[in-house]
Nucleic acid binder design. Structure first.
Length: 643
DNA sequence: CTAGGGTTAG
């Protein structure tokens, strides 16, 4: 390092933001220092690596340099390759090609190929491959490794293989890349074969097998590979936690998290996001609070993904205030994921207007909406009954933002109309969709038919569903419930018989409650354990009291069986959410809110019972069902009976 | 002065 370089390094070390960098830049311009390629290069590097949100400044820095060298181009290309505009890497590469004084080297190709991979752009990737070929750089080990990853990202496994086969001296990293390529292209068996034939493996090779298995949902294989690993590091543990949580196996995720600590390792930020996601699914608020404390003590609050996971977890545990606190006070830069998490959190509580407000705030902060945040905002509209706003967003999405609606967006629209009771409009919408409706779309409409008791439309919808997915028990249950709701017991019996003939079983409803940091699960009609027996005893007492003091009359609509009135009553009474609430009331201390998580949507009778309990017992109840949160207080639900 | 493969949220 020469003196000038040392000077730059020591000054830039203290440039923590763009303003202080600009001060140094101004000084360099005035003194003529910036003409030195080393100084210009250092400035550019600092923008792309150490500062955030300064890529635009970096670009201008390059454009204002009279004769940028390869290093400057490469630095800028690298900065863009992992940004949200990887396309700028490609244009910078082209810029370099037009400059006769700087021709691309192996670094340029590696970085630009990374951008092509992130864009999943086969055309650009293949073009770069040709360019590298003509310059004799395609067999450069770093370039060929990136080529393998790029082709795999684009779904072209055969190209990736060809590059690998033609690589003269593949090292362990190249081998790892080709194993990952097989997983990326859904070829688990191929990945295993290549892995077995690897001449040498390091820890990363084993870890990518775990990552590959868990991403494919092959959790048992992952578990076996994990147990067979000679050495495990924190990436191994994190991969297992994240992988199991992703597939809804939150108990296993919790288990691995406990294991980490048992073997004396400290959970890192990745394992924490994984276990937080498990909490979100389980609705384990108390555990989430403990993790939050741990995160603060460990100094991990600067990491945006951790804050996003916390926001999401608090939201899904019903504590939207805590979610908001984390969201508003997060010290790092908010990403589009942060905003989406918060929007969903508000939407689940039915705060539609606030969710929309946040969307606009996000735009003002300079973040461009993507397809997913539009799903969130449409969800917010449908759960708050904001039909007109929802339609507006849907139209603007394509026209103003240039985002082509995906099947999920169409699903949101069907839900928007369906929840509002505009069933025919929803049906019309489906028949006019430019893409063929899938089962989710029809099932959404069937749910709305059930809520509004529209038998005729439901039968039509069910016909479509039985063509697309004949063996789904949930659809049949829903249809039978619709018949039961209007007293068509003969039709109920027909559906039931056909279900029995097809050997279908109803997937059971379950509810969970956390008491003293233990999660208790209740399943309607399941074998009775001690907690369930305790819940039944308490429930009996509660039902009597709300009959006498609250004027409760059982709602017997959503019962599957054509049975005697009294039995029907019993069947509704044992819905799992009632058991969970009863259990909580018996166990929780006076004045604490009862929080329940349910895997299905709450039925009308349970909804009524919750309202009455909240009034008669002066008790706050928060119920998270499949679709949203219900907060019961003094006889009223936050969903305004709209779910 | 920059590299390639393994875990991070909606």
């Amino acid at each position: 390092m020469n003196k000038l370089e040392q000077f730059c390094v020591s000054v830039l070390k203290n440039c923590k933001n763009l303003t202080s960098l600009q001060q140094f830049h101004a000084h360099a311009l005035k003194t003529g220092l910036s003409a030195d390629p080393i100084v210009a290069g250092k400035l550019l590097l600092h923008c792309t690596v150490h500062l955030s949100d300064t890529l635009d400044y970096a670009r201008r820095l390059l454009l204002h340099t009279s004769n940028p060298d390869v290093f400057m181009y490469n630095t800028l290309i690298r900065g863009f390759s992992d940004s949200d505009t990887p396309h700028d890497s490609l244009s910078t590469f082209t810029l370099m090609l037009n400059n006769l004084d700087a021709s691309p080297d192996s670094f340029s190709f590696a970085f630009t190929l990374k951008a092509a991979a992130n864009l999943r752009c086969f055309r650009s990737g293949a073009q770069l491959h040709c360019q590298a070929l003509t310059r004799g750089l395609d067999t450069h080990l770093f370039v060929s490794t990136t080529l393998i990853s790029m082709y795999a990202e684009c779904g072209c496994l055969s190209f990736a293989r060809k590059v690998f086969d033609e690589t003269p001296d593949p090292n362990v990293v190249t081998w790892n890349a080709i194993v990952t390529a097989f997983f990326r292209c859904d070829d688990v068996k191929g990945a295993e074969k290549v892995f077995a034939s690897m001449p040498l493996k390091n820890l990363a090779s084993y870890n990518l097998m775990l990552a590959g298995y868990t991403k494919m949902g092959e959790l048992e294989y992952a578990r076996r590979a994990f147990e067979e690993m000679p050495v495990k590091d924190e990436v191994s543990w994190s991969t297992m936690i994240v992988g199991f949580a992703r597939y809804g196996c939150f108990d296993e995720a919790f288990g691995y998290f406990r294991e980490i600590q048992r073997v004396g390792m400290r959970p890192n930020e990745v394992s924490l996001t994984g276990v937080l996601s498990a909490c979100a699914q389980a609705g384990a608020l108390e555990f989430a609070k403990i993790l939050h404390g741990f995160i603060e003590k460990a100094g991990l609050v600067w990491i945006t993904p951790v804050n996003n996971a916390l926001t999401d977890t608090y939201s899904k545990c019903g504590s939207v205030d805590m979610a908001r606190l984390v969201f508003e006070r997060m010290p790092g830069k908010k990403s589009i994921v942060s905003w989406t998490s918060m929007i969903v959190g508000l939407a689940m509580q039915g705060y539609g207007e606030e969710a929309i407000g946040l969307f606009h705030e996000m735009e003002e902060s300079g973040i461009k909406p993507d397809g997913i945040v539009f799903i969130a905002i449409l969800y917010a509209c449908s759960h708050a009954g904001l039909v007109e706003q929802g339609c507006n967003f849907f139209d603007k999405m394509a026209e103003v933002y240039g985002i082509k609606p995906a099947i999920e967006h169409y699903g949101c629209m069907v839900d928007l109309y369906g929840r509002a009771g505009q069933l025919l409009k929803a049906y019309d919408f489906i028949t006019n969709m430019p893409i063929p409706p899938n089962v989710v779309i029809w099932r959404t409409l069937l749910g709305a038919c059930s809520f509004y008791g529209n038998v005729k439309l439901a039968e039509q919808v069910q016909k479509r569903l039985s063509e697309l997915d004949p063996n789904n028990s949930g659809d049949h249950v829903l249809l039978s419930n619709i018949y039961a709701g209007v007293g068509k017991w003969k039709d109920v019996a027909i559906v039931r018989r056909s279900m029995a003939e097809m050997k279908m079983t109803k997937s059971p409803g379950w509810s969970m409650i956390e008491v003293d940091k233990v999660m208790y699960t209740f399943i309607a009609g399941a074998k009775q354990d001690d907690a369930t027996k305790e819940a039944y005893r308490k429930l009996k007492e509660i039902m009597t009291r709300i009959r006498v003091e609250g004027g409760y009359v059982p709602e017997v609509m959503n019962v599957l069986h054509d049975i005697e009135e009294e039995e029907k009553e019993d069947a509704v009474i044992t819905h799992s959410e009632k058991l969970a609430v009863a259990f909580g009331m018996g166990r929780l201390s006076e004045g604490s809110v009862v929080r329940i998580m349910k895997n299905l949507r709450v039925c009308k009778d349970c909804h009524t019972v919750m309202k009455l309990i909240s009034k008669v017992y002066r008790l706050g109840i928060v119920l998270r069902d499949r679709s949203r949160f219900h907060s019961f207080n003094d006889g009223v639900c936050s969903c305004k009976d709209y779910w």
